[in-house]
Amino acid sequence: MEKYFLSYLDILEAEAIHILREVAGQFERPALLFSGGKDSITLVRLAEKAFRPGKFPFPLVHIDTGHNFPEVLQYRNKLVSKLGERLIVRNVEDTIKKRGLKESKGKNASRNALQTYTLLDTIEEFKFDVCIGGARRDEEKARAKERVFSIRDEFGQWNPKLQRPELWSIYNGRINYGENVRVFPISNWTEFDVWNYIKRENIQLPEIYFAHGRNCVVRDGQLLALSEYINLSDDDIITNKKVRFRTVGDMTCTAGVESNAGTIDDVINELKLSRTSERGETRLDDKTSEAAMEDRKKAGYF
């Protein structure tokens, strides 16, 4: 029997590939949401495993807030040209102008919430019926409740009380006109699993995931990368620290952690010792209230 034993990473990988192929088989116009973070980079590898030597049955879509780490954009462009797949970029900046949206002001101003508008406009523009995302259930307690195939109404909203039961490995992607679906193939992966997979697969990541010297602004005990997008005030302290980033979001709402980890193995070792969750440690966008993620999802967020 031992001969027919799969390790947990192989099981998770097989499950994710199965989900990606279900998307290809069930939908007319899928898209893969690509942020340049480690989770969406993992999705790209899984898509290669699911569809090569064929082309991906979907384009990559990047909702660009304009506040990205430059290293991540360089990485994105390199990856896409290597893959030979189509990349669609839509800018939050354009949405703001077109719709006359107000940007949040003040010290902790961020375009996080505005991404939802651009995302929904992009879905409308290309008539995507499904968007694949890299969200994981271990990230956050509202995400822990979300299905792999998560149905959104015509306003892009998640209704946690009306979720379809999801049984075995049978995914129901049938929708009514105007609805669309968000699919999360790595729902059952933890942060650890993602790192172990990146290691096993020898996947290149943007440099910001590894320790590097950087000028940071200290806010509420968190280290924000100093950039032109941050509104500085007189009492802000700027300091040079050796940091790495555990998640990749906007420069305005993603904090670094002090670290000496220069390789994947170093990062995994630091993670083993860490007593904080990745979003808790590094995301300012989740801290606004206890139900911050649930509320954003109900409004159409990833």
């Binding site: 956050e140 307690k141 509202a142 995400r143 822990a144 409740k145 946690p160 009380k161 979720q163 206890e290 139900a291 649930e294």
Partner: peptide, 15 residues
């Protein structure tokens, strides 16, 4: 994990 669950002190959906 849902607001309604915390408010009512019950589990509604699979976590």
């Amino acid at each position: 994990g849902l607001r309604a669950e915390r408010e009512q002190g019950i589990t509604i959906d699979v976590a």
